[in-house]
Computed example of a mutant assay.
Amino acid sequence: MSSEIMDAYWAAPPMARTLATAILVTSISVHFGFVSFVWFYFTEDRLLRFPPEIWRLATTFFLSRPKLGIIMDPYFAFQYLRDLEVANSRFPRKEDVLWYLITVGGFIIFLNRTFLGGGFFLDALIMALAYTATQDQRGIRSNFFFFTVPAQAIPYCMLVSSLLMSPAAIPLQITGIVAAHLYDFLSRLWPEFGGGRNILATPRFVSYLVQTPRVLKRDYGTAIRQPNAPTAGSSTGASTGSVLPDSWKTRGAGHRLGGN
Rank of each mutant, 00 (worst) to 15 (best):
P245L: 01
V38E: 14
Y100W: 13
T240G: 03
A223H: 09
A8R: 15
I224F: 11
D96G: 09
R46G: 09
S29W: 05
G259N: 13
D184R: 12
F185Y: 13
Y100S: 05
T212R: 14
F76T: 09
Q226H: 13
A229L: 03
V149F: 08
L19E: 00
L122D: 07
T134L: 01
E4C: 04
G254S: 06
G106L: 06
W55R: 08
V38D: 14
L63T: 06
D219Y: 11
W248L: 09
L216C: 07
W190C: 11
S161H: 12
R225S: 07
F144R: 02
S3I: 12
L57C: 09
V35A: 10
T59Q: 01
G221Q: 08
I70V: 13
A201V: 12
L84V: 05
Y208S: 12
S29I: 06
F34T: 14
K249F: 04
S162Y: 02
W39Q: 10
Q226S: 12
D73T: 03
S27V: 05
S29R: 03
T148Y: 11
L257Q: 11
H31P: 07
V30T: 09
A229C: 05
A238R: 10
W55K: 08
P150R: 00
R46S: 15
M1T: 12
A87I: 09
Q152G: 03
R49T: 14
S89Q: 11
P155Q: 03
A20I: 00
P245N: 02
F37D: 15
T236C: 07
F144Q: 03
Q226P: 07
K67D: 15
W248C: 01
I174P: 00
M15N: 10
F91Q: 05
A87F: 11
F34M: 14
M15L: 15
R251T: 09
I109F: 02
M158F: 01
L57A: 08
I177H: 01
L63G: 04
A223V: 12
G259T: 13
H31W: 15
A232T: 14
A168P: 00
A22F: 08
R188M: 09
A58D: 03
T134M: 06
W55A: 07
D7M: 15
Y183G: 00
S64Y: 02
A58F: 14
V215K: 06
T250G: 10
R214N: 07
M127W: 01
P52S: 07
D7C: 12
N228D: 14
A130H: 01
L57W: 09
R113T: 15
I126G: 02
D96Q: 13
Y9A: 01
G139V: 11
D136S: 12
F205Y: 15
I5N: 06
I70W: 05
T59R: 01
M6S: 10
D123V: 06
G241I: 06
L57T: 04
M72N: 11
I177M: 05
A169R: 04
R251M: 15
G258M: 05
I102F: 15
D246W: 13
R256G: 14
M165E: 12
P13I: 01
A12G: 07
F107E: 01
A153K: 02
A169P: 00
T21Y: 00
I54N: 10
A20P: 02
A8E: 10
I71N: 06
